[in-house]
């Protein structure tokens, strides 16, 4: 059984947010929702200022607070390390969200048929529907309509249910096809890596061994599967600049 981990190389990250966008398109997340989020920080005062970037996918913790608090087992951890949400079981209590110290959970505040309203694109335009068949969004990924893993649960994609919790899935639908997550796939500067950490000779295992690394909020004991290399953890001095439009 594989044990998937992601490595974020902060010495290479340019903060371009291509990963956020690839995630959005791959997973069809609604407006304002970024399962992968990239912080852009500024520290210090002029002229002794510094800039840093920090991509933040779901940490897929090995000791995941969200899994513990879920009252129905909709949030669960798989043997391969992925922390997933069963969209057909989630009752929308949002307990996982308050329990997660990383802020990676996104609730379906809007109903699916209005999830893309903020984009001001009328996908039901008759001229368009003649071509798209009325699928919303028109770039909708059909991988999300099928169940994943031996457990056979509906766990990938976004925005197809009302009132349930969603978050980064490490692109379970791609991983199960042998592909890397969409964010890793698109990263233009090779700052994201993904692989099986159980295999000691896999590129990711070798890379982790050869580099100094840290995990986000290590002190909480959540033991994330996302490993950061280079750079430094954000400090209380880090001020976020250049936020996307994330409020729905």
């Amino acid at each position: 059984m594989a044990r998937y981990k992601m490595v974020v190389d902060l010495d290479r990250c340019q903060g371009c947010r291509a990963c956020m966008e690839a995630c959005k398109v791959e997973n069809n997340t609604p407006a304002g929702v970024f399962w992968m989020y990239v912080f852009r920080f500024e520290q210090g005062e002029f002229p002794d200022t510094s800039i840093s970037f920090l991509p933040r996918p779901c940490q897929h913790c090995n000791n995941a607070p969200c899994v513990k608090v879920c009252p129905t087992g909709a949030r669960y951890k798989r043997e391969d390390g992925l922390v997933l949400t069963d969209f057909e079981r989630c009752i929308g209590c949002r307990y996982c969200e308050v329990a997660c110290p990383y802020g990676v959970n996104y609730f379906n505040w809007r109903k699916p048929d209005h999830a893309f309203d903020d984009y001001k694109m009328d996908f039901s335009d008759p001229d368009l529907v003649a071509f798209t068949g009325g699928v919303v969004p028109p770039y909708r990924n059909p991988d999300h309509d099928v169940k994943h893993g031996p457990e056979g649960r509906l766990t990938s994609g976004s925005g197809h249910f009302k009132g349930v919790m969603e978050k980064c899935t490490f692109c379970v639908h791609r991983v199960e096809k042998g592909l890397v997550p969409a964010c890793v796939d698109t990263c233009p500067v090779g700052a994201l890596r993904f692989g099986d950490a159980e295999d000691e000779n896999s590129p990711i295992s070798v890379f982790i061994r050869e580099h100094e690394s840290f995990q986000l909020l290590e002190e909480l004991g959540t033991d994330p599967s996302v490993i950061y290399v280079g750079g430094a953890p954000p400090s209380t001095e880090s001020r976020e600049i250049e936020r996307p439009m994330t409020r729905v």
Partner: peptide
């Protein structure tokens, strides 16, 4: 030039394929 990667603009333009505006 890009060897298997795309920037955020490259990723995002898919929505413009279906821009009713």
């Amino acid at each position: 030039r890009n060897d298997g990667t795309l920037c955020p603009k490259g990723q995002a333009q898919i929505i413009s394929f279906y821009d009713p505006n």
